[in-house]
Amino acid sequence: MLAVSVDSHFVHKMWQDYELSKMVDGGVPFPILSDGSGNIGKVYGVYDADAGVEMRGRFIIDPDGVIQAIEVLTPPVGRNVNELIRQIKAFQLVRKTKGGEATPSGWEPGKPTLKPGPDLVGKVWEVWKVDNAF
């Protein structure tokens, strides 16, 4: 987990020490990075030059350094940690099966996966029901 904003590392320290540590014992257990110039945010497409801040961009990056998922929100709406964890579990399953299994809409651990191949063409309706999306 890496957090990034345009604030300096000094301000990160103040925020961690004076506010975050009151929400999480000992403060958040990951590095908070400083991107004052917005250089990193620009390359990731989340830097808002007019406001001088970075949008709520979230990237899931696999062990090979490949981006598997992107979510970008404007500032007033927060993220959903459960959905983040669900997506990581789904990408980890796909990676573990070397793409042999895929996770359909609404998948979460315990729900059926799909095994793409010639036999599945036109047969998804037999193994996946709309209820599984929810």
């Binding site: 890496l2 709520r56 990237f59 062990p63």
Partner: peptide, 23 residues
């Protein structure tokens, strides 16, 4: 911190608008 320090691990990279913002 470099992103490349984390090769071999899953990484969640989160940008946010600013320290002491409310959400």
């Amino acid at each position: 911190v470099s992103l490349s320090d984390y090769l071999g691990k899953w990484v969640v990279l989160c940008f946010y608008p600013g320290d002491f913002t409310f959400v």
